[in-house]
Design a protein around this nucleic acid. Structure first.
Length: 117
DNA sequence: CTACTGACCGCGA
DNA sequence: GTCGCGGCCAGTA
């Protein structure tokens, strides 16, 4: 069955799709943005259930610590790291500085689209 | 019903 | 930097 996915999933996907290019957001931030505060795990689950063919910047979603959620060395890890770097996001040892590239870190800077001010 | 497992989070030590 | 604990939701056994 495919009930066009639950509302929660739809909102989560919308929140992820809203992340500007060259920026990242944490699972918790996405959940809050989707109107689901505290449901960070649900975001992780939703990302694992992304329908094939759906264009979604899943790689812009990181842990609250800026760490890539995939196990280091795994295909997902490398793929995410590669895509982020391709957008100009600085990935250091599988981690991104949310202070510089995070949305929830500095919304004002996000509006300017200039990381690091 | 309990128990375990996940692309998780925040606090405290 | 590390480790532990409780909270969170959904699926599976």
């Amino acid at each position: 069955m495919d009930p066009a996915i639950d509302d929660a999933h739809a909102r989560i996907y919308a929140a992820i799709a809203a992340i500007p290019r060259g920026r990242v957001a944490s699972y918790g931030a996405i959940a809050a943005r989707a109107g689901l505060p505290g449901r960070a795990r649900l975001v992780g689950r939703a990302l694992g259930e992304v329908p094939a063919g759906m264009e979604l910047p899943w790689y812009r979603v990181l842990r609250s610590s800026g760490q890539i959620a995939f196990p280091p060395g795994s295909q997902g890890f490398r793929e995410q790291s590669r895509r982020l770097k391709a957008e100009g996001v600085e990935v250091r040892n599988g981690r991104v500085s949310l202070a510089s590239f995070g949305l929830d870190a500095d919304i004002d800077r996000a509006l300017w689209g200039m990381p690091g001010g």
